[in-house]
Design a protein around this nucleic acid. Structure first.
Length: 265
DNA sequence: GGGCGGGCGGGAG
DNA sequence: ACTCCCGCCCGCC
C-alpha cells in the first residue's frame, strides 16, 4: 500500500475541528474521505471497472457489468453501502491501474475503515495469495488464527468491498470446487484463467481427491497451485489427499504456500 | 454426487 | 442486549 496522504497526528477530533474551522478555505485533503469520495471508471484491464476512492485509498470497486454499465447504478450502490456522497474524478488514484493489471493489492492504497476487524484480517490474508495461485477458505481461516470461522471467512469475502484488488477470486473450496463469487462463478473462472490457473488440472486433481502436491526429492509439500509445486518434475511429483498423509510420509509443509492441516478426507 | 449438522461473524429487528 | 437468520464453507454420512 502506498502512502500519498499528508502525515497527520492521531488526534482525529482536533484534526476535524481544525478542518471545520478552515472549511471556508481549502478543505484539508485528509478530511475528504470522511465527507465524500470520488469515483472513476477504467476501461482496462477488465472490460470496465468502477472505483470509489479518496486520499485515504480505494474503498469500493465494482465491475461495470455488475452495475449494468451504469454510472448512476454504481453511485447508488456506493451511497447505499457507505452513506456518503460521490463525486466524479478526472483521473484514477495512483497505483490503481497497476494494481488491477498485476492483481497485487499492494500497488494501491486501500481504505478498509468500513470493514470490521475480522473482515480486515480476512482481506489482508487474502491479499497475500499470489497471482496465479489459489487457497481454500479454510486456509484463510487458519491464517488469521480462527480455524473454525471458515464459513465466516466466506461471508467476509462475500462483502469484500474491493474485489479484484483483494483477490478473493483466488479463494476456493477445500474440496477442489471453486465456491462462490460476488460477480458470479463464470467471472471467477475467467479471472483465474487469465492468471494462468489450470482449472482443468484442478478439477482433475479434485476428482482424484488430491489436494496437496509434493516432491520426493525435496520432501516439501504444497498446495497444487503453489509456484513451487508447479516446478516439480513429473517424475518426482507425488499427490496427497491430506496434509497428514504427506507429513507421515516425511514431507514438510512449504514455507511459501503454508498448506494447512484442514482438508477433505 | 447429495444432504445435514456444526461452526462463525454480521446485520436486522 | 438479545435473538434470529443468513451466507463465496467443511467434513461426515
Amino acid at each position: 500500500m502506498t502512502t500519498n496522504r499528508v502525515p497527520t497526528g492521531d488526534s482525529r477530533d482536533t484534526d476535524l475541528l481544525a478542518a471545520l474551522v478552515g472549511l471556508a478555505a481549502d478543505p484539508p485533503s485528509d478530511l475528504t474521505g470522511r465527507v465524500f469520495s470520488s469515483w472513476c471508471r477504467l476501461e482496462q484491464p477488465v472490460r470496465g471497472v468502477y472505483a470509489a476512492f479518496s486520499d485515504d485509498g480505494v474503498s469500493y470497486l465494482r465491475t461495470s457489468e455488475s452495475v449494468d454499465d451504469s454510472d448512476e447504478r454504481f453511485a447508488q450502490a456506493f451511497r447505499q453501502r457507505f452513506r456518503r456522497p460521490l463525486l466524479p474524478a478526472p483521473r484514477p488514484p495512483a497505483g490503481l491501474l497497476p494494481a488491477l493489471r498485476r492483481g497485487n493489492p499492494r500497488d494501491v492504497r486501500l481504505d478498509l475503515r468500513e470493514s470490521t476487524a475480522f473482515e480486515r484480517a480476512v482481506l489482508q490474508a487474502t491479499a497475500g495469495i499470489p497471482r496465479g495461485e489459489t487457497r481454500p477458505y479454510a486456509w484463510v481461516a487458519k491464517e488469521i488464527g480462527r480455524p473454525n470461522a471458515v464459513r465466516a471467512v466466506g461471508s467476509a469475502l462475500g462483502r469484500n468491498p474491493v474485489p479484484l484488488l483483494v483477490p478473493c477470486h483466488r479463494v476456493t473450496r477445500s474440496d477442489g470446487h471453486l465456491g462462490g463469487y460476488v460477480f458470479g462463478l463464470d467471472f471467477k473462472r475467467t479471472l483465474l484463467r487469465a492468471e494462468a490457473v489450470d482449472l482443468d488440472e484442478l478439477s482433475r486433481l479434485a476428482e482424484q481427491r488430491v489436494f496437496y502436491v509434493g516432491s520426493d526429492s525435496t520432501n516439501v509439500v504444497c498446495f497444487p497451485t503453489c509456484h513451487h509445486a508447479r516446478r516439480i518434475t513429473p517424475a518426482h511429483r507425488r499427490g496427497f489427499r491430506t496434509l497428514d498423509q504427506a507429513q507421515r510420509a516425511g514431507y514438510r509443509p512449504c514455507l511459501a504456500c503454508r498448506p494447512a492441516a484442514t482438508g477433505v478426507r
